[in-house]
């Protein structure tokens, strides 16, 4: 009894302190439910093991204290990346190997995929290792895709197409298996033929042959583009030339005939005189330039009468109209006087 009263007394004495401690620990216990979600995070609230909210926005929040509720805070805006090599590694490692194309060629590549968490709940609870699953799904997509393309498509034209369709495919598979992620990019890096046994250089030489082909065609086309306009301009100038010529001869003919007619109209008024004058003018024009040898056939030839000259005489007389004697004499005398 005495003991008890001692205990009671002591207890009584400490009662406010104990009550204070209990109250304080209750406050702390209640306050343990306060949590902060950082801007790059989303809060996932779990009540008795069940996810009740996986989209708690950044800020200060409260959950029921343990053991009722707990919170996980995955970084959902963080971009995660995964590099998946497709390279020859001596055939030992199943983790990577060259890709087979549809025409039984091999290519190496590295696939870089990036993703963010889209569904925190799925990301956290639906697979044991989202990265491992995602990696395998990507490998599967790539194998399937490359096995249906030719190596030329893969190496030249197909890269963008491959990236786009891989992204679509892998995203579809990821959704199907509820990985809770969203792919932000799929990049094919360093796609190249195998370097062993001179394969790579053979591929390069095809590329340069293709360039060469292109260049030959371009050169020929360039030459064509130079030659065609040149020949068109040649043709044009030939035509203009011909037109000019045509105009020229017509104008010349008109000029000549006008001149002829003018002269002829005057000539008609004094035929004999004019003809002879024209004749002499022509002779004057020619004679000074030409060497002259004047012979007297009558004197040189044995023939006494100078018969050969007679037809010439006549011819001259025929071709020239009657020449006024006085006219000729005037000229001759002038010439002689010079």
């Amino acid at each position: 009894m005495n003991e008890h009263s001692d205990f009671a007394r002591t207890f009584q004495h400490a009662r406010p302190i104990i009550a204070g401690l209990i109250a304080l620990s209750l406050v702390f216990y209640a306050a343990s439910g306060l949590y902060v979600v950082e801007p790059e995070q989303r809060g996932v609230v779990i009540r008795f093991g069940k996810v009740v909210d996986d989209r708690v926005m950044p800020g200060m929040h409260y959950h029921w204290p343990w053991p009722i509720e707990s919170v996980q805070r995955p970084r959902t805006t963080e971009v995660r990346s995964l590099a998946i090599p497709f390279r020859d590694n001596g055939g030992k490692n199943i983790d990577a190997g060259e890709l087979l194309t549809g025409d039984e060629n091999l290519v190496q590549a590295t696939l870089l995929i990036q993703y963010i968490i889209k569904q925190p709940k799925d990301y956290l609870t639906s697979t044991t290792d989202p990265d491992a699953v995602l990696k395998r799904l990507t490998q599967w997509s790539s194998i399937k895709h490359f096995a249906a393309m030719s190596v030329d498509e893969v190496l030249t034209t197909g890269r963008d197409t491959i990236q786009r369709s891989l992204k679509r495919n892998v995203q579809r598979l990821a959704d199907e298996h509820r990985l809770g992620i969203r792919l932000t990019s799929v990049q094919l890096q360093n796609i190249e033929p195998p370097s062993a046994n001179g394969v790579a250089s053979a591929f390069k030489s095809v590329a340069s042959a293709r360039e060469e082909k292109h260049k030959l065609e371009q050169d020929a086309a360039g030459e064509r583009n130079r030659r065609l306009p040149k020949s068109r301009s040649d043709a044009e100038s030939l035509l203009r030339d011909a037109e000019a010529y045509a105009k020229e001869v017509v104008e010349k003919a008109q000029g000549d005939s006008e001149r002829f007619l003018s002269v002829w109209r005057e000539y008609r008024k004094a035929k004999n005189i004019t003809a002879y004058r024209l004749y002499l003018e022509a002779v004057e024009n020619i004679m000074p330039r030409a060497k002259k040898l004047i012979i007297n056939p009558a004197a040189e030839q044995a023939g006494p009468t100078g018969r050969p000259q007679e037809p010439r005489h006549r011819q001259a007389n025929r071709s020239l109209p009657d020449l006024g004697n006085s006219f000729l004499s005037q000229h001759s005398t002038k010439n002689l006087q010079k």
Binding site: L293, Q309, A316
Partner: peptide, 17 residues
């Protein structure tokens, strides 16, 4: 032209006078 040599007969009407 000046390379031409004309052989003219002195009995030609041109030389009549």
């Amino acid at each position: 032209d000046d390379k031409t040599t004309l052989i003219l007969s002195s009995q030609s009407p041109l030389f009549k006078y």
